[in-house]
Amino acid sequence: MVNGIVFYGIPGLLAIMGLVILLQRENLIKMLIGLSVMETGVNLFIVGTNDVLKGTAPIIEEGFRIYCDPIPQALVLTAIVIGVATTALGLALVIRIYEKKGGISIKDIKEMKW
């Protein structure tokens, strides 16, 4: 149960928090922060799937009996990098929008609809 809360509950909470930030804020930068937080939640979840307490690095030697799966860690590295790229691109767009429209509110990007 504790495992569940630590490895799935907290990332899940983080992801939902990020989502709430994304959905409830009007400031574009805050929305991007929300997106980023959500991605972090998912990333934590990836690491958390490896729910082995007291595990070590996967080395085939004597004494390394309980070890962690390395693949999720490799995956999460990639995911973090991608997340950074996405956030950077988003912020770049926000800067351009600010230059163009003089504001970074969600109202500034509601021109096209229907």
């Binding site: 989502l19 994304l22 929305m31 969600i106 609809k113 229907w114």
Partner: peptide
Amino acid sequence: RIYTGDVRTYV
């Protein structure tokens, strides 16, 4: 009216 133009609605 679904296509509000507001990205939050899309999410």
